[in-house]
Simulated assay, not measured.
Amino acid sequence: MSDRNLLLDDIKTEIEPFNAKGVAVTEGTSFQKDLEWDSLTVMDFVAAIEDRFDIIITMNMQAEIETVGQLVDAVAKLKS
Rank of each mutant, 00 (worst) to 15 (best):
residue 21 K to R: 12
residue 13 T to V: 14
residue 77 K to V: 15
residue 78 L to R: 10
residue 51 D to V: 09
residue 52 R to D: 06
residue 53 F to C: 02
residue 21 K to F: 10
residue 56 I to V: 14
residue 22 G to K: 07
residue 72 V to F: 02
residue 78 L to Q: 10
residue 24 A to D: 13
residue 62 Q to T: 14
residue 62 Q to G: 14
residue 52 R to N: 09
residue 44 D to L: 08
residue 19 N to F: 09
residue 14 E to K: 12
residue 68 V to D: 00
residue 13 T to Y: 09
residue 65 I to L: 14
residue 78 L to N: 11
residue 28 G to V: 10
residue 50 E to T: 08
residue 15 I to T: 02
residue 13 T to E: 15
residue 18 F to A: 04
residue 56 I to L: 08
residue 53 F to S: 01
residue 71 L to P: 00
residue 9 D to W: 04
residue 3 D to N: 09
residue 12 K to F: 06
residue 38 D to P: 03
residue 76 A to F: 04
residue 1 M to Q: 07
residue 63 A to S: 15
residue 25 V to H: 03
residue 36 E to S: 08
residue 38 D to S: 05
residue 71 L to A: 01
residue 40 L to H: 05
residue 14 E to D: 13
residue 31 F to H: 01
residue 45 F to P: 00
residue 74 A to I: 04
residue 62 Q to C: 11
residue 36 E to C: 06
residue 2 S to K: 05
residue 57 I to Y: 01
residue 22 G to M: 09
residue 72 V to G: 00
residue 48 A to N: 09
residue 39 S to M: 06
residue 45 F to S: 02
residue 43 M to P: 01
residue 61 M to H: 08
residue 45 F to M: 05
residue 63 A to F: 08
residue 25 V to R: 02
residue 41 T to H: 04
residue 13 T to D: 15
residue 80 S to P: 03
residue 66 E to A: 14
residue 69 G to S: 13
residue 11 I to S: 00
residue 1 M to K: 05
residue 17 P to N: 12
residue 69 G to I: 07
residue 56 I to F: 07
residue 26 T to A: 12
residue 17 P to W: 11
residue 58 T to F: 05
residue 24 A to H: 08
residue 65 I to H: 01
residue 2 S to T: 15
residue 16 E to K: 13
residue 3 D to A: 09
residue 59 M to G: 05
residue 9 D to C: 06
residue 33 K to Q: 11
residue 28 G to Q: 14
residue 27 E to G: 12
residue 19 N to Q: 11
residue 64 E to L: 12
residue 42 V to M: 09
residue 27 E to R: 08
residue 4 R to L: 07
residue 49 I to D: 01
residue 60 N to S: 12
residue 13 T to Q: 12
residue 74 A to Q: 12
residue 37 W to T: 01
residue 39 S to C: 07
residue 60 N to V: 13
residue 63 A to R: 13
residue 23 V to E: 13
residue 40 L to P: 03
residue 64 E to Q: 15
residue 29 T to A: 08
residue 41 T to A: 10
residue 77 K to S: 14
residue 26 T to C: 06
residue 46 V to D: 00
